Measured scan of single mutants.
Amino acid sequence: MIVFVRFNSSHGFPVEVDSDTSIFQLKEVVAKRQGVPADQLRVIFAGKELRNDWTVQNCDLDQQSIVHIVQRPWRKGQEMNATGGDDPRNAAGGCEREPQSLTRVDLSSSVLPGDSVGLAVILHTDSRKDSPPAGSPAGRSIYNSFYVYCKGPCQRVQPGKLRVQCSTCRQATLTLTQGPSCWDDVLIPNRMSGECQSPHCPGTSAEFFFKCGAHPTSDKETSVALHLIATNSRNITCITCTDVRSPVLVFQCNSRHVICLDCFHLYCVTRLNDRQFVHDPQLGYSLPCVAGCPNSLIKELHHFRILGEEQYNRYQQYGAEECVLQMGGVLCPRPGCGAGLLPEPDQRKVTCEGGNGLGCGFAFCRECKEAYHEGECSAVFEASGTTTQAYRVDERAAEQARWEAASKETIKKTTKPCPRCHVPVEKNGGCMHMKCPQPQCRLEWCWNCGCEWNRVCMGDHWFDV
C-alpha cells in the first residue's frame, strides 16, 4: 500500500509500505531520502505521535493516508518512550493509558441525555464484534464512529474520518494533550489543546475536521460531520418502519427517538411537499423529531443533505422563500418566477423588478396576487391545505425507538455506581478489583462488596467470576 509523507509540512511524497511495516522502518526510509538522522524524526498522525514499535496496521493507516513527519531533536526523557523501550505506560498493571487514536474515538455516547454525564468515556458498548469485510486488514473493525456528507465523488452519507490540525499553522502536526470525549470537544473551536510539532510553531489549540472515509482524499478535501447519525450498535428499532437498520439518525429530543435514513428521507420529502418545515429565527429551515417532541429541531442543517441534490435544492429554495415571508415580504405569483420581494408595508401595487435578471417585471396586487387592478379585489380565496398535519407515529413504536432507553438498560445490566462519587462504572470481565475512572475520584473498590478495596476482598473473592 501507499502512504503519503509530508516532511516538515512540505509537499508530500509517496512511500510504499506493508501492513506489518513498523513506524521506525518508515522513519528509516524517510531519513534516507531526506539525509537526516532517523532518531530525530517524529511521525504524527490523527493528533498522535506514533511509536517506533507500532506497525502501519496498528495505527489504522489506510491506503493513501497522509502522515506528517517532522525533524525535531529529542528532548530529555522522550527518546526512550518513542523507541518502544522502557515506557512506564506499558508496564503490566499500570494505570496510565495511551491517548486514544482519533481513528478509534467514539462519540456516540454523547447523544445520551444530559443526566448521563461521564458515560462518553466510561461506558463502552460490546456491539462492535462484526466481522471485518472481505479485503480489510485482519482485526480491523467495521464499526463506524462518525458519518459525514461527502460532496465529492460519493454525493451521499458516508463513514467519516476525524482529523485534527494546529489552529495556528493549519498543519496536521499537532499532538493532542488528551483525546475528545464528546461532540462539544470536536465542534467547539479551541476547546481542546495540544502541542504543535512543526518547527518554530508555538500553536497549542486544536482544530478538528472530518474527511470522507470511503475514498482517498487530499489535504484540502473536508466534509461536514453529521453528528446525529450513528451506527445502530444498540439495535434500536426505527420509529417509523420498526426495522432494525444501521446507520440511524438520533433526534435530540428527551427520548432520543431513532429513525433509519430511508424513513428520514421520506419524512423530509413529505414535509417538504406540504411546505411544513419549521422556520426558526436562529436555526433556519428545519424539522423536529418525527414524533413531534418539543425542543427537538435539527440544529445542523447539513443533515438535510440526505435528501439528495434535487430535493436539497428545493429545500434551500423553500427556506429562502419562507425567510422572505417571515420578513413581511411577498413572492411573485407569476408561474416560473417566484422571486422574493420586500415592498413597503402599505404598498398595494407590487412590481417584480426586472433588474439584474432576477425579476420578471410582472405587476400584481398584494392582496389577491392577481395582475394589478384598481378598486376592490374580486375574490380572495383562503389558501387550502395549509394546516399542519401531524406525522403519524405509532405510540408503541415510539416507545421502542428510544436510544436513551437502550442506554439505561445497558447501564443497569453492566454497571454499578462507584461507592464514593456514584458514577456508573462498567465491568466487562476481569477481577473484582475496580478503579473509578473519574479523575477527581480514582477510588479503588470491590465490585462484589461495593466497598473500598481491602485485604478481605483480596483474599476471599479477588478473582471470582
Rank of each mutant, 00 (worst) to 15 (best):
residue 306 I to P: 02
residue 150 C to Q: 00
residue 110 S to G: 10
residue 2 I to D: 12
residue 224 V to R: 09
residue 44 I to C: 06
residue 13 F to R: 02
residue 84 G to E: 12
residue 125 T to A: 14
residue 441 C to W: 01
residue 305 R to F: 06
residue 10 S to H: 14
residue 462 W to V: 04
residue 464 D to S: 15
residue 384 S to E: 06
residue 360 C to H: 03
residue 378 S to G: 11
residue 348 R to H: 07
residue 142 I to E: 13
residue 441 C to L: 00
residue 428 N to Q: 15
residue 451 C to P: 15
residue 281 P to Q: 07
residue 41 L to W: 01
residue 364 F to L: 04
residue 113 P to C: 11
residue 353 E to R: 07
residue 389 Q to K: 14
residue 174 L to K: 01
residue 119 L to E: 15
residue 422 H to R: 06
residue 50 L to H: 00
residue 228 L to V: 01
residue 446 C to H: 00
residue 46 A to P: 00
residue 437 P to E: 06
residue 313 N to K: 13
residue 41 L to Y: 02
residue 363 A to L: 12
residue 28 E to V: 03
residue 225 A to W: 04
residue 295 N to Y: 05
residue 308 G to S: 05
residue 338 G to H: 06
residue 371 A to G: 08
residue 463 F to S: 00
residue 367 E to V: 11
residue 361 G to P: 02
residue 56 V to D: 00
residue 106 D to A: 11
residue 280 D to A: 09
residue 450 G to N: 02
residue 121 V to P: 15
residue 422 H to C: 08
residue 71 Q to N: 06
residue 362 F to I: 07
residue 218 S to W: 07
residue 356 N to W: 05
residue 198 S to Q: 13
residue 37 P to R: 10
residue 253 C to L: 01
residue 360 C to K: 03
residue 350 V to R: 03
residue 238 C to S: 00
residue 252 Q to C: 07
residue 22 S to G: 03
residue 119 L to N: 15
residue 309 E to T: 13
residue 417 P to F: 08
residue 226 L to I: 03
residue 104 R to W: 07
residue 329 G to W: 03
residue 281 P to K: 10
residue 374 E to Y: 06
residue 348 R to N: 06
residue 11 H to R: 05
residue 18 D to C: 09
residue 247 P to M: 05
residue 158 Q to C: 11
residue 56 V to H: 01
residue 445 W to E: 00
residue 175 T to Q: 11
residue 292 G to P: 01
residue 16 E to K: 10
residue 2 I to Y: 11
residue 351 T to E: 08
residue 32 K to C: 11
residue 333 P to L: 02
residue 239 I to Y: 06
residue 436 C to A: 02
residue 108 S to F: 06
residue 187 L to E: 05
residue 397 A to C: 11
residue 234 R to A: 09
residue 346 D to F: 12
residue 370 E to Y: 04
residue 5 V to I: 09
residue 205 S to F: 13
residue 213 G to H: 06
residue 241 C to H: 01
residue 159 P to D: 03
residue 151 K to D: 15
residue 154 C to G: 00
residue 445 W to C: 02
residue 219 D to R: 07
residue 97 R to E: 11
residue 354 G to C: 07
residue 40 Q to Y: 06
residue 34 Q to E: 15
residue 95 C to T: 10
residue 45 F to Y: 13
residue 113 P to Y: 09
residue 308 G to C: 05
residue 301 L to K: 09
residue 347 Q to T: 09
residue 230 A to V: 09
residue 292 G to V: 03
residue 312 Y to F: 13
residue 446 C to V: 01
residue 231 T to A: 12
residue 423 V to L: 11
residue 328 G to D: 06
residue 164 V to T: 07
residue 106 D to N: 12
residue 290 V to W: 04
residue 318 Y to S: 02
residue 12 G to Q: 09
residue 111 V to M: 13
residue 117 V to A: 13
residue 66 I to V: 15
residue 394 D to N: 07
residue 457 C to N: 00
residue 402 R to V: 08
residue 316 Q to W: 07
residue 101 S to E: 14
residue 31 A to T: 03
residue 216 P to C: 09
residue 30 V to R: 01
residue 378 S to L: 08
residue 168 T to E: 11
residue 465 V to C: 15
residue 408 K to Q: 11
residue 376 E to S: 13
